[in-house]
Design a protein around this nucleic acid. Structure first.
Length: 255
DNA sequence: ATGGCTTGAGTGTCAAGA
């Protein structure tokens, strides 16, 4: 089973890239973030024609998450239960026996800001919820745009980014808090090239210069870790015309 | 150099992203 995550930065603009990528990469499940549309603008028909069912938790202009899958999406749920949040950042469903959680974690804007406080509260709520979900669903994968670079090796210039948003200690502590539940960062289960990133700024020709961060992740529950055969970042879509600023991350599971 | 692009809102130019 191949599962993947991709922040598409507007599904309306990126639909051709998504359809091409589905045909090429053939994932069994694909988590999308930043669809930036309500359900009425969501391309259910085009995805159906491509062989994918979809569930969507969207809103106008900002945020919005979806899961696309070849098989049925069972037991779909939206948002973090008990966490009052108007922003549409979470959707979950079971696909072929694996609980898939798709999350678009807050950016936080600037350390110390209101949005930063919201980000840390959000991450705490997610972690509490994940602790419960892992009891309910031993085979669980948390995929998405975490907006956290977990370690200095995930950052093109760790000195410049030290303590900055996406790299601050409380954010990295929150990431480690998720790992402390027993989950593993699928990408780090394998040898990887140095300077592997999943996001590059649109400005300053950052992609061509590989000025990036690794902030999109796939976390696997203990029951899924040993069956993970590969985890890769596909930079190809980032090279296209009008790309998303994020690249897809893919994990291959033997189940 | 606090910008540099890109998007969605909506016809002016701004907020937000990371």
């Amino acid at each position: 089973m191949k599962i993947a995550t991709w922040n598409v930065n507007s599904l309306k603009v990126r639909l051709p890239h998504v359809l091409d990528w589905l045909a090429l990469a053939q994932p069994d499940a694909l988590c999308l973030q930043e669809t930036k549309t309500e359900d009425k603008g969501f391309p259910f028909e085009a995805l159906e024609s491509a062989g994918y069912r979809a569930i969507h938790n969207g809103q106008k202009t900002y945020n919005g998450v979806a899961i696309l899958a070849r098989s049925a999406l069972v037991g779909a749920s939206c948002d973090i239960p008990g966490f009052d949040d108007p922003q549409k950042r979470v959707i979950a469903a079971t696909v072929d026996d694996v609980r898939i959680i798709c999350a678009y974690m807050p950016n936080g804007q600037e350390v110390g800001s209101e949005k930063y406080a919201y980000k840390l509260k959000w991450l705490a709520a997610l972690t509490d919820w994940m602790r419960e979900e892992l009891q309910r669903y031993p085979k669980l994968a948390l995929l998405g745009d975490f907006n956290i670079a977990p370690e200095d090796r995930d950052v093109h210039d760790p000195v410049a980014w030290q303590g900055q948003i996406l790299c601050s200690k409380p954010e990295r502590d929150a990431f480690r808090g998720l790992l402390a539940l027993g989950m593993a960062d699928a990408f780090r289960l394998f040898d990887q090239a140095e300077k592997s990133y999943s996001w590059w700024d649109y400005r300053m020709m950052a992609f061509r210069r590989n000025i990036g961060l690794r902030i999109d992740h796939i976390l696997l529950s203990p029951a899924l870790i040993s069956g993970c055969k590969a985890c890769t970042i596909d930079k190809a879509p980032r090279k296209l015309e009008r790309p998303s600023d994020h690249a897809p991350v893919i994990a291959e599971l033997t189940c």
